[in-house]
């Protein structure tokens, strides 16, 4: 009797906790969507901030974030994929691979502000890039490298070994096998890494604080050595240190909504691709 009752109570609590976590997500999302949706308009998306960032739009910040995303992907994506190909296809299961995996895990666990410090020391000061798209992109690229490597490795692992042995048996070299058989099969899953990285990069603030982000710029960037505004930093600025924090509140809600939209869209997209193609690989 008592056993059953305590079980029922415990399970009820777990169920409530489960609901609570979902509730928290919807609370945060609902809060931002509810307050931000009224702000969104063509003008908000496609014009620059005016009146000390209390009105106008966020176009320069969107462009800036786009530049940083593209820049960091150009750097991290090829490098990450090559690294994953090496560990998964070439290195076997030696201590080298174990070492590399540990290092990748460690890199992933370093806080983003430390990447910011490092980017400032190396790219901004030592290499003399200054606060620029280039410095910011390299810093962000390094930050998402472990994510790219991990998703690519998983994608490569999901390719059945029979694909490889089949291709090798037909006389293809190892590189040909990878290029013509393994990579095409793994490609959809590899793109989830790209998409997740885009989501991650567009939301990061701490790494670009001192490497790329500008408080306010009326102009759009014209080259890779220009400073840019960026969505997450813009949100931080108008929430904490804008010229008139109260007046720029609606702008903040709008910016948060755009930011969250981009980030969650990427996450959801990646989830669907993974689900869809994993089924396909299995049924093959």
């Amino acid at each position: 009797m008592n056993k059953k009752l305590s079980q029922r109570i415990a399970f009820m609590i777990f169920r409530i906790l489960g609901l609570m976590v979902v509730g928290i997500l919807f609370w945060i999302l609902g809060f931002i969507v509810y307050n931000g949706i009224g702000v969104i308009s063509w003008e908000f998306i496609f014009s620059a901030p005016t009146n000390g960032m209390t009105s106008g739009g966020i176009f320069p910040a969107i462009v800036g974030t786009l530049c940083l995303v593209v820049g960091s992907m150009i750097f991290a994506f090829p490098l990450g994929i090559m690294s994953a190909i090496y560990t998964n296809e070439y290195a076997g299961n030696s201590w080298v691979v174990r070492f590399i995996r540990i290092m990748t895990n460690n890199l992933a666990s370093i806080p983003s502000i430390v990447f910011g410090l490092f980017g400032m020391a190396l790219f901004v000061n030592t290499l003399g890039f200054g606060d620029s798209i280039l410095a910011g992109s390299l810093t962000l690229g390094l930050l998402v490298l472990p994510l790219v490597i991990r998703t690519t490795e998983e994608a490569l692992k999901a390719v059945p070994n029979s694909y490889r042995t089949g291709s090798l048996a037909l006389g293809a070299t190892k590189l040909q096998t990878i290029r013509k058989v393994v990579l095409p099969a793994a490609f959809p899953n590899i793109t989830t890494g790209l998409i997740l990285s885009i989501g991650r990069v567009s939301g990061e603030t701490a790494p670009i604080l001192f490497t790329a982000a500008a408080y306010f710029l009326p102009k759009l960037p014209s080259g890779i050595f220009d400073q840019v505004m960026a969505l997450p930093y813009h949100l931080y600025v108008i929430v904490t240190s804008g010229t008139d924090i109260e007046a720029s509140r609606p702008m903040a809600y709008g910016t948060a909504l755009v930011l969250i939209f981009i980030v969650l869209l990427m996450n959801i997209l990646a989830m669907f691709i993974r689900r869809f193609f994993n089924k396909k690989l299995k049924t093959n």
Binding site: R200, V239, L259, V263
Partner: peptide
């Protein structure tokens, strides 16, 4: 406890929670 369907709904929710940028958390 959760059935397969609940799991399939809740896991992505939790992933999304992890995806929200920290500035947005800060703002909230």
């Amino acid at each position: 406890l959760a059935g397969e369907r609940t799991r399939k709904l809740m896991k992505p929710t939790i992933e999304l929670l992890a995806g929200i940028p920290s500035v947005v958390y800060g703002f909230f």
